[in-house]
Nucleic acid binder design. Structure first.
Length: 612
DNA sequence: TGCGAAACAT
């Protein structure tokens, strides 16, 4: 079915003064609810596009297009069917602007604020309403603010804030809560959000959740968890949405113990187990290292959405259990769930992390052929990763050259890593140099080139990179590893000596080094990003945050218990090799989450098969 | 004359 859509921006050309003076048609219908009620009832239940189109005809035939209530319900119905422009073509075919009221406009604004289309449309109709001389009601503002949040436009948000104060709606808690949320979403808006939050006379669970979610989205997960504690102290009862936000902070921190506590809290307090909450739990367990628990929860869910399936597939992929991920994907299709783009990203990354090259290729083509999904840059990225990991560097490069969209720096970096691992050093060097020209302020581009020179054993070039970076004032992301112990998260950052057990930890690190050397470990110094001699390199390696965290765990946890750590970057080659030795020497399972996946070290082996 | 807020998978 085809609809002709009136594009919002064309509406600028409507002469509003003319509209206002035109005679009102069908005046008789305006105030008689009984006449329009059947039409409203049908609109309420309208759930398909053909029905909507039929109603459209009826509305015109009956002259209801001048009835604001009918227009409003038609707009809601269209919005539910993701066909807002269709409603707009009806609404703005009206000849007399006097049928427009604040309720109709707040419905239009809502439709655009909640749609996947440009949030600018919502702002446009807000301004259009003002242009018509219609005073907004307070119900419009949560949606106008939602649009500002979607646009992440702080200045716009501030302007709307000023305007709603002028209309006197700033004492409404719904409006206040949405303002907190809006400021949390805008870049640079956190301080405004926090100020509002701190000054609000009454905080309900929604206010707290908006603020907690704000910290979580910014990656300030520890702050989010801290605020959740304050919420409990304040005696405000968290609800299901609060738990979802807190769980996503746990997931980010890799805080399995806290996550388990939240799960038991949910059970104890009988928090409503929505499908979103179950999904958040599944995701948390998978990303905090207990993928079997995630699978168990997933199996017990009475209702599953595409998000549930994707979470568990991605979880398995991260743990290197690609075959299980693939079979779950097949099970998902068999259950009638239609996979969409994100599910394929999870699936392709599962193939990639488990070396399932042929499967990956098949799924990539099935995605388009069978499901009509146009591959996005992330899908191409997965394929480059898949080919690169498998050592098919030339094919990966050809794949990139044939891509119909511009490759992004992530794809180039994947290729460069592959070049280093598989010995295509000259190629890696030239791609690196090109990438540095395009993206001169990105630290990892230099690290990659430096590692290539390390493998070439070209120390002179390697040290030049460090000088170049210093000159450009490039910010380095320090490696950091987190570990949870007794309801506390300990973070170890390279070069940070502030931990109160620092001296003991260093002693332990040195002891670990001696034991490992006795067992045949040789430090991998080619990746050290410092211009220093070999002995100091070893020293620098032994201070890596991963090793500090493992030493801390060996000192503070019972013998034989598993060690779970979370690293912010990808695990370095030396720490990976050292972890294998440590797992055997100290008889510990080490579960390490790095930026891209999990490594389960056990008895001298890693689940990633040394491929990550 | 009808209406509103916070959350999950890359």
């Amino acid at each position: 079915m085809r609809f002709s859509y009136l594009k919002p921006r064309l509406l600028h050309s409507i002469n509003t003064s003319k509209l206002k003076t035109t005679t009102l048609h069908h005046q008789s219908n305006m105030n008689h609810r009984a006449v329009e009620q059947p039409c409203l009832d049908i609109l309420q239940a309208c759930n398909t596009l053909p029905k909507l189109a039929q109603l459209h005809t009826h509305i015109i035939k009956l002259g209801f297009q001048n009835n604001p209530l009918v227009l409003t319900k038609f707009t809601s119905a269209s919005s539910n069917l993701d066909a807002i422009p269709y409603a707009m073509s009806l609404v703005f075919s009206v000849e007399d602007a006097r049928v427009y009221d604040a309720f109709l406009f707040s419905t239009i604004i809502r439709a655009y604020a909640e749609s996947s289309q440009s949030k600018h449309n919502a702002i446009f109709y807000y301004n259009l309403m003002l242009g018509y001389g219609i005073s907004p009601n307070k119900y419009a503002f949560p949606f106008v603010l939602k649009a500002c949040a979607g646009l992440r436009d702080l200045n716009l948000g501030k302007a709307v804030h000023g305007s709603l104060v002028k209309f006197g709606f700033d004492d409404d808690i719904f409006v206040q809560n949405t303002m907190v949320h809006m400021y949390c979403c805008c870049s640079g808006g956190m301080e405004f959000a926090r100020k509002l939050f701190d000054e609000m006379p009454k905080l309900d669970p929604v206010t707290w959740t908006a603020m907690i979610g704000g910290y979580a989205r910014l990656g300030q997960s520890a702050g989010a968890v801290g605020l959740f504690r304050k919420m409990q102290i304040a005696g405000v009862c968290p609800d299901d949405v609060t738990m979802v936000s807190v769980l996503s902070a746990c997931t980010d921190l890799g805080a399995l113990e806290l996550g388990k506590w939240i799960e038991s809290y949910i059970e104890k307090e009988r928090v409503l187990k929505t499908v979103e909450l179950s999904n958040a739990l599944v995701d948390m367990f998978a990303k905090c290292g207990d993928v079997d628990k995630a699978l168990g929860l997933f199996r017990n869910m009475s209702k599953r959405t595409i998000v549930s399936w994707t979470s568990v597939i991605v979880g398995l992929a991260m743990h290197g259990r690609g075959l299980e991920a693939v079979s779950l994907f097949e099970e998902m299709k068999a259950s009638g769930m239609v996979p969409e783009d994100i599910a394929f990203i999870g699936l392709l990354s599962a193939c990639s992390h488990s070396g399932l090259v042929e499967r990956g290729r098949q799924y990539f083509s099935e995605m388009t052929r069978q499901f009509g999904i146009v591959p996005k840059i992330e899908h191409y990225g997965c394929m480059v990763d898949l080919l690169s990991r498998a050592g098919l560097v030339t094919e990966a490069l050809e794949f990139v050259e044939r891509m119909p969209i511009e490759p992004n720096p992530i794809i180039w970096r994947t290729l460069i890593s592959a070049c280093r691992v598989h010995g295509e050093l000259k190629l890696g060097e030239s791609i690196s140099k090109q990438l540095i020209r395009n993206e001169p302020m990105h630290e990892s581009n230099y690290v990659l080139l430096s590692n290539i020179y390390g493998k070439m054993l070209d120390w002179e070039k390697k040290s030049k990179i460090r000088v170049a970076m210093g000159k450009k004032g490039i910010q380095k992301v320090p490696g950091s590893t987190m570990i949870e112990l007794d309801n506390e998260i300990h973070e170890f950052i390279v070069g940070d000596r502030s931990h109160n057990q620092y001296n003991e930890i260093i002693k332990m690190v040195n002891e670990m080094g001696r034991e490992m050397k006795r067992a045949g470990y040789a430090p991998t110094t080619t990746e050290v990003f410092l211009d220093i001699d070999e002995e100091d390199k070893e020293d620098a390696l032994s201070r890596h945050s991963e090793k500090l965290a493992i030493a801390f765990a060996l000192l503070n946890t019972p013998p034989g218990s598993p060690i779970r750590i979370t690293k912010n970057l990808r695990v370095c080659g030396d720490c990976h090799s050292a972890s294998k030795f440590i797992s055997k020497i100290y008889n510990r399972e080490i579960v390490m989450r790095d930026r891209s996946r999990f490594h389960h070290f056990r008895d001298g082996q890693c689940s990633c098969g040394d491929f990550w």
